[in-house]
Design a binder for these strands. Structure first.
Lengths: 231, 231
DNA sequence: CGCGGCTTTGATGTTCATCAAGTAAAGTGG
DNA sequence: CCACTTTACTTGATGAACATCAAAGCCGCG
């Protein structure tokens, strides 16, 4: 990780999400003094489960996973988040300590704003507060819904679901590099590593996928769609 | 359901949660004009999945379940909420329509405040906004955490968990009446009705519980605690 | 009184985790 | 840069946990 000595100012930030468009110029100048921009390499922890919540984090570029240590020390991945996703924030306003870790899956740039400064803005800017509320609400709904969705599917359905998700929501292509290992796929969709591999191979043998290491090419979209909805 | 012609005013409401203590007298007078108090009988829908979100709901007394229709038309219960729990609100600020139904498990009194009026208050009262954010954040964290907790347990662990939850969090006693059917227990902790029954009987035969219809008496707390943590 | 939903128990089968064992790939230190 | 270690990947065999199916009694309700 590396803190950037940034000469950029929040006012001119190209990564201002919809959230920050509600801030006045003065407010942007204000939080400018309370922000750090930090680069994380692939694999680095951004937050460790148990760390005190002292900042409001905002992913500018990259890809991260939100995960925690479950039963038997098995890691469980709650979600994978891109810039503009607020998934990482769900617990920011209700916990003194992070209940989950956040780890970079790719080189990622995070904007870290002092939490008290953000709270000050919330108190004085109602539109900002309301927008934030909507974002937090939306991301927790998304996480919860996908958790339920996934565990209603059988193992093949889960693999189909997650491949389509990567294809449609992250890479917008039929060909992509998996950003996570087989083990992590298992942690994300709740199955063992062995079965992740088995089913990927099965799909490959059936001509639904081409696989080479982390490279995936989806050959039969329709099939995956059907099986993802149970089949 | 029955709308109460209430002569009570928000200012003097004995059920004001921590949330509403942030409001000024004027604000309480303001929302007073936008509220209805409604009584629901056991079994009545308070909200149906798909209804437009037009109100901010607040449970004054009673017990409700939050549930949705999952795969194969099977109902899934997301959580059971008491007064002061904000579970029902998670989607209020991010969805045009309720993604879940809310049903009364007991005679329940709900205070329904026009959503636009609440949003007006959010915009003008920062402390209220911040508190609301914390509450929403806290309840979604709770729901998500318990969902993950539950599906890491085997079936016995789940039954133990839910019995302890009712005992400790709802009734504060070792003897209580289950507010839901065996089928609903299954929908809540993700197992079939048959297995719910089987395991309850097993616990009864082992002297851990006494059961008579919906009445439960926990005889061996320690055992349940141990098995709930996997055993 | 009869119908539908809830409850209960037993028998059967399938999906999935676990265990085992081996190969490949990737990181580490001399 | 090569030996070493660790971590990731892969396939097969086995068994256990759980769902499903079946059948019957029970209860509340119109």
């Amino acid at each position: 990780m590396k803190v950037i000595e940034s000469h950029s100012f929040c006012q001119y930030c190209g990564f201002k999400s919809r959230l920050f468009t509600h801030l006045t110029d003065e407010e942007l100048v204000y939080i400018n003094d309370f922000k750090d921009e930090i680069i994380y390499d692939k694999g680095e922890f951004i937050i460790r489960q148990g760390d005190p919540v002292k900042e409001f984090l905002y992913l500018k570029t990259g890809l991260v996973k939100l995960h925690f240590v479950g039963h038997n020390n098995r890691d469980r991945i709650i979600s994978i988040a891109r810039p503009l996703d607020f998934v990482s924030l769900v617990s920011t306003f209700s916990n003194a300590e992070y209940p989950q870790s956040i780890t970079a899956l790719d080189k990622s740039v995070v904007c870290s704003i002092n939490l008290e400064a953000i709270k000050t803005i919330i108190r004085q800017n109602g539109d900002f507060a309301l927008e934030l509320l909507e974002q937090v609400s939306k991301s927790s709904h998304f996480v919860l819904q996908s958790t339920y969705d996934i565990d209603e599917k059988n193992l093949r359905g889960r693999i189909a679901y997650i491949l389509l998700w990567f294809s449609k929501k992250i890479y917008h292509k039929d060909t992509f590099e998996l950003p996570i290992s087989r083990k992590e796929i298992g942690e994300l969709i709740n199955m063992t590593t062995e079965n992740v591999i088995r089913i990927l191979s099965e799909f490959r043998k059936d001509g639904i996928l081409e696989i080479s290491g982390k490279s995936i090419e989806i050959k039969d979209h329709t099939f995956l769609e059907r099986i993802s909805k149970w089949g």
